[in-house]
Amino acid sequence: MMSIILRDIRIGARAGGGMLIGILFFLAVIAVVPFAVGPDLNLLARIGPAILWIGALLASLLGLERLFQADREDGSLDRMILHDHEHPLALTVFAKCVAHWLTTGLPLVIVSPALGLLMNMQPAAILATSVTLLAGTPAITFIGATGAALAVALPRGGLLVSVMVLPFVIPVLIFGVLAAYGAVENPAPFMQPFLLLCALTLFFAVLGPLAAGAALKASSD
């Protein structure tokens, strides 16, 4: 499993592209919001966590379709399916998801504080948003893996993956933003939505790879 993670991180780092595109898209979304909303600093600070979450969500959907497609095109996927005996496909998918999150999700979490400044957010709100993104973006990857696996055989399935995955990531978005608000607005709780967010991530960390593994196996027919 470690060898798959290391390989995919190496590919992600060397091929460039993927990692930066996500960050640039995230930056673009956040940078245009103040122009659209206007120079109302209080309003920006209030909608900040939600906008950061939406930006991160869309940016993580961006690279999902390539998760298995590159492996399918060069024949690697066939061999991974054949190695099912030594390395269950679900674990292989899990490893690929971890590597994918480390190369595309984690950079988004890391740049989110800087983008929070663009939204005039308070330090506490920035910290809370980054923590919820850290806990929530893995869930997006795990859910997305199922969508990517289902669409792996389709050429240009990118938009389809996003459309399939979006309904399932909405709970992640709701609890992520709820927890981020809970940290700064007094009566709202932080802990409960945050724990639910963590639970979602753990739940999909199991279900996503299992479903994606089954879908990949069926796709080789």
Binding site: R7, R10, I11, G75, D78, D84, H85
Partner: peptide, 19 residues
């Protein structure tokens, strides 16, 4: 299963160009 005992050399080389 056969897959566990076999090497499969398919039409594609299954190697990553950047590695």
């Amino acid at each position: 299963e056969v897959g566990a005992a076999a090497h499969y050399l398919g039409p594609f080389n299954a190697m990553k160009p950047t590695l």
